[in-house]
Amino acid sequence: MDERIDTGSIIVQHDGIPLPEYVRFDELWHDVAPTIRALVAEAATLAADGYGGVPQDENKATYAGMFTAEDSTINWSWPSHDVHNLVRAFHFGTGIPGPFATIDGEHVRVLRTRLTPGSGTRVELPDGPLWIEEAEPVAQRFP
């Protein structure tokens, strides 16, 4: 840790934790808890031995702020992967409703998408198709 959030040196890290395509916040900890326990134990041992870690590469760092109402509407000019990840983020839980879209003139909340051929409505995006597997109508126009 240092004076800013998530900017301190890296003492230990691990990637590659297998997660399902659609995970909810309350399910996540079951999947990541064993890795977190191991990392904290390893980091504590290294820190106690005086290891200060390696500085983070600021060129690779990203920041995602809190979701806002503007984030709750799907932008069909985005790449399919970005739209898919937006739907997944709202499935995980953002604290605001969404994501909303207009499909064939109907206003809907998109609940589940896929990047490979499957059931549901196929939507053509700039870089290729996206399949909307699950959506629910909304009574009024979204933000």
Rank of each mutant, 00 (worst) to 15 (best):
I103H: 04
T102F: 09
R88H: 13
T35I: 14
W76G: 01
H91C: 07
H81Y: 12
S77Y: 13
P99N: 05
T94N: 07
G65I: 03
T116K: 14
P79R: 11
A135M: 03
L39C: 07
A44H: 02
V108C: 02
T102D: 13
T73P: 09
A139S: 11
E3C: 04
G98I: 05
E42H: 11
V110M: 04
L125R: 02
Q56I: 08
T35K: 14
T45D: 10
G53Q: 14
L130Q: 06
V108R: 00
A135P: 00
Y51D: 13
E106K: 07
G65R: 05
P18C: 10
F90P: 01
T35S: 15
A61N: 00
G98R: 04
H14C: 14
H91L: 06
P79Y: 08
T121N: 01
E58L: 15
I74N: 02
H30L: 04
A41Q: 06
H81L: 08
R37G: 06
D15W: 11
L111K: 13
T113P: 00
R24K: 13
H84M: 12
D104R: 06
A89L: 05
D6Y: 06
A38Q: 09
E42L: 11
T73C: 14
D82E: 09
L130D: 02
E27Q: 14
Y22S: 02
G65N: 05
K60M: 03
W76A: 05
Q140L: 11
L130V: 08
A139C: 06
Q56D: 04
S80F: 00
E42V: 09
G16K: 11
N75R: 07
V32Q: 03
L39P: 02
V138M: 06
V110W: 01
W78G: 01
Q56A: 07
V87C: 11
A41C: 03
S77R: 13
H81E: 08
D2C: 09
T121G: 00
F92T: 08
L130F: 01
Q56N: 08
V32Y: 04
V87P: 03
A38G: 04
G93E: 02
R37S: 03
G65A: 07
T121F: 00
G98P: 05
G98W: 04
E70P: 14
L46M: 10
G105M: 14
A89C: 13
Q140M: 11
I10A: 03
D2S: 13
G52E: 14
S119M: 01
E134Y: 01
H14G: 09
